[in-house]
Every structure is written in structure tokens, then in C-alpha cells.
Design a protein around this nucleic acid. Structure first.
Lengths: 119, 119
DNA sequence: CCGGATCCGGTCTGATACTG
DNA sequence: CAGTATCAGACCGGATCCGG
């Protein structure tokens, strides 16, 4: 799908850590996947079944991107046909702090949102 | 520009606080503006002069969106012609935690990013 | 079925030009 | 200076199709 190679380990827009981070996770779906991974989801269909209804092509693309950035890793849990499960790396788990900050902000400032996480 | 009314105070995709928060700040530019506001920038041209080179139409749009969500407020610092300066509300200042988490993640995991903030 | 890949219309982005 | 206008091209998201 996307042809940008987000060379993992490089800042695209500036040296600012905020900009660098946003270049990697600054979109509507990526952190939702990280949230799901923290919640124990592992496989494609589990991500797909989240209430936000991510389209399959976007899901596929975001998983690849997270892989390329070393935020998740995948391993086959079954051969023939091959099936993969995804898990957060240490780098990915460190995003828990960002997620927590968002949870707190959302719970405080967006009416009608309720706690769902325990990273 | 955009015709979506992001009804401020409502979740669009799900009840999850992460999704709610991402619906508001989940794009490449919004949090960069919040960062600039924390750094003391107040007016249009100051935001424009940040190293990421935000296009003027996007800048204009994001400021409106932040205004609509009560994250920033503007007041005229000059009449004739009217000029506005922007400032974070309490709700906006609460995003500092998200920003800090991103700074820490970026500094730790993205080579070549250096601290620039002190919210 | 499950995990995608492909196709396609519509929306949004971003470079630039322009206006008060 | 603080935006608005324009426009091509990138990207999103829905639907559909396909290999195992």
C-alpha cells in the first residue's frame, strides 16, 4: 500500500522527539492497535473485532509498519497454512506511558468514555 | 476546509478513552501545535516558523479544531486589524502528560532526537 | 473460514498563490 | 501578518476477491 519507507530509526520532519514520535504513531489507528496488544489481543481477527472497526487493508498496513519500526514482532503459531501472532517488543511496551496519558485525558475530558485498560 | 463537525464532547468511534482522544488529537500536526503552545508560542507566524513547516491552511484548520474542542482559546491582542493570540486552556494543558510521554519515548527510541521541552 | 491483497470513489493533505 | 483559495496527488475506508 504505502510506499513510504519510514526508515526505522530516523526522524522525518525535525529532530524534535515529539515530531519523531508522531511520524511513527501519529495517526488514528496505530495506537489503537497498541492498545489492543496491551489488552492481550494477538491475531488479525482479534484486532479486526475491536469496536472501532478498522478496515482490513489499514490493519494489514499498520501491522507492517509497526513491524518495520520494531514496535511489534510476529511469529508463526501454526504452519500449513501459516498463521502469525503479534506481540509488543520492549520498544512497543514503552508506549504504554503514552497510552496511559491518553486514557487519563480521555476519561477526564471526553464525556462518555470509560476505563477499559490496565497496562 | 473540512466539513466534519467533530461535535466537541462526543466520541465518534467507540467509548474507549484512547479512541476518543485519538479522534481529537490523533494526527500528525495537532500535538505539534500543543507542543509549540507549551513552548510559549502564541501567534500564527510563530507556529508557522516551527521546523516542521506546517502548511498555512492546515495550521488554520487545526487551530479552529483545537478551539472547537476547547483545547485552546484565542483573544485579540490588537484591533484594527484584529489579531489573535492563542493559549492553552486547562484542558489543553492536561495534554502535557501525553506530550511528556512522547518526548520520553522519542528520546529513548528514536536516534537523533534531542530534548526541547519543559512543560 | 482467515488473513490478507486489490480496486476504487471520495476525502484530506500540502505546495503555492493570493487577499485584506 | 493572518489567514483563504485552489488543485493535484496521496491516503483513507468500504467492498470485493483470492490463496491456503
Amino acid at each position: 500500500m504505502s510506499h513510504q519507507h519510514d526508515a526505522p530509526g530516523e526522524c522525518k520532519r525535525s529532530m524534535c522527539p515529539v515530531a519523531c514520535t508522531l511520524d511513527i504513531i501519529g495517526d488514528k489507528w496505530t495506537l489503537l492497535l497498541v492498545r489492543d496488544l496491551f489488552a492481550g489481543k494477538k491475531i488479525f481477527s482479534e484486532f479486526q473485532s475491536s469496536p472501532e472497526n478498522i478496515p482490513t487493508n489499514i490493519l494489514s498496513d499498520r501491522l507492517k509498519r509497526l513491524l518495520a519500526h520494531g514496535i511489534v514482532e510476529k511469529n508463526a503459531y501454526q504452519t500449513h497454512p501459516v498463521r502469525y501472532e503479534y506481540a509488543l517488543t520492549a520498544k512497543g511496551k514503552d508506549l504504554g506511558a503514552v497510552l496511559n496519558a491518553m486514557v487519563q485525558w480521555g476519561e477526564r475530558h471526553v464525556p462518555g468514555s470509560k476505563a477499559l485498560m490496565q497496562p
